[in-house]
Design a protein around this nucleic acid. Sequence first.
RNA 1: GCGCCCGUAGCUCAGCUGGAUAGAGUAUCGCCCUCCGAAGGCGAGGGUCGCACGUUCGAAUCGUGUCGGGCGCGCCA
Length: 594
Amino acid sequence: MKQALHSLVVSGLTQLRDAGQIAQFDPAQIKIELPRDKSHGDFATNVAMMLAKPNGMNPRALAEQLIAHLPSADWLVGAEIAGPGFINFRVQAAAKFAALATILEKTADYGRINAGEGKLVQVEFVSANPTGPLHVGHGRGAAYGSALVSLLRHAGYQVEAEYYVNDAGRQMDILTVSVWLRYLALCGETFTFPSNGYQGDYIITTARALLSEQGEALRASAIDVFANVSPDQVLDASGQVVSGDKEAHIDDIIINARQLLGTERYRLILDRVLHDILVDIKEDLAEFGVHYDNWFSERSLMDTGIVDAALARLEAAGKLYEKEGAIWFRSTDYGDAKDRVVVRDNGIKTYFASDIAYHYDKLSRGYEKIINIWGSDHHGYIPRVRGSIQAMGEDDARLEVLLVQFAVLYRGAEKASMSTRSGQFVTLRELREEIGTDATRFFYVMRRCDQHMDFDLDLAKSKSNENPLYYIQYAHARCCGVFTQAVAKGFSAWQSELGLSQLALLTEESEAELAQKLTQLPEVIQLAARDHEPHQIAYYLKELATQLHSYYNGTPILVADDALRNARLTLLAATRIVLANGLTLLGVSAPERM
RNA sequence: GCGCCCGUAGCUCAGCUGGAUAGAGUAUCGCCCUCCGAAGGCGAGGGUCGCACGUUCGAAUCGUGUCGGGCGCGCCA
């Protein structure tokens, strides 16, 4: 409908242009919008005001000319000038119901569009370090990322969802040592657990598994483990460091662990804990309705030499140099605040080196666009990554980085801690189990991702009617309920053909509005996909649910008249489809009963 | 100090890339179940869009400054 109007306006303007009344114009700039005020008609455009100035014309006069040259269409009932130069359009009532047949026919596919034209896009999201279970902070990225993936798929893109597994580096060593120390404690060794070790129960679980599988084959004496280890930090009551250094402390333990265990046994522990955590993360995400096409290992980048290849490209471009024993990337050439180390003075490559290689690899895989969804705390990281892409001779416009702001958690009025190290964080699993997957996903995706967000756990947990999700799901359940009610009341089951043939009986204003709202889904999906904003879907569903509830409350559906009853049921059937499609898109269920 | 994000109703948030009288939920206050699900509907009150300039026919939206909040500025990942 909107597109039809758009082409009418374009052809009207084209005539004016050919008659020499106005200059050339860009059809893409012409917008047909929905007036806020119903008295302004069904659609409106502001082209007359847009084009008035460049053509030296009065907006209202231009509008008048345009209306005079508008091709006629049987569904267009009127076009009037209003205000400073808006043109308001009125559309025939029957035209508003035209989409119902399409909706019923396409069902789950209604809303799918081809804006993406099958272009290959990759979305990387969550990618939390495999050092422990996902916490609620990751939940937002997971909900947002997977909603974006399905949104883009509905919009006609071919999308691959990827999780980058940081299974290399010092954190893996700390993880390994943490497990080993717990294992040693289970063997009967006595010592103080390092303050910088991972303290969660999952560490002990893996340690216990190792003990039962390996017996004491991995045992060493605490005296050897802590030999020549620099002292751990000591804190005073206010949390200030009195003495010691927790980083140096654990690094020394790592050195001893490698020596005492040897490469093979050390690797055995590392692989074991990594495996356990990844299994947990995958299961957690799957239960959250989040699915990936690829799990990409950082370690594999090193093993296959991609890191070296990427660094060689930077070297060839003359963007690497040596200073103070380390090798630096000249990222300041690309707007970064300072140059960055890629190889430390101890010869170990930094995380950034892996990441350069990772992006290099992703770009070489042929995606039209790669989208990274990062926590907002990583924003300072963007310039150096873009810089590395440019330095390697690639187009950094192919990379898009979307930042997800943190959700600040509250329990009532109190902030909830999210620290992974403290062992007191709220896990995503805990959140899901308490408030359910549907509510969790909907709450996260309801807000723009670049917006700070307050997540009140108590509120989300309470199954009160304050939860907007229930409002939408209830609308869907209501739509479903009427059909079983119809039969229970002794009416014949819904006949879609009869209903579709009798849509002219739907003369209520709320019926026309509801039908028109249904036709907006494809457009909402297109805009939401273009802007990467799933929350637009949530808002649309909310509005649709409002209209449904209002209609349902004020108009009896199950009337005795077969024709009218079936027409109304047809409208509800279409509404049910649209609600279900929207909810599915967000990863939320559409229950038939609640 | 520098950089990024953000200040819209008591609270939580939208505002379709500059348009008509700034919206929704919640909270508060009135109504509506002999009727298809009241997890619902109808109505009322509530705003100097942080503040100040500027850009133009027109600004919550764009620019500059300023105040306030969040985050980032490692040879960590």
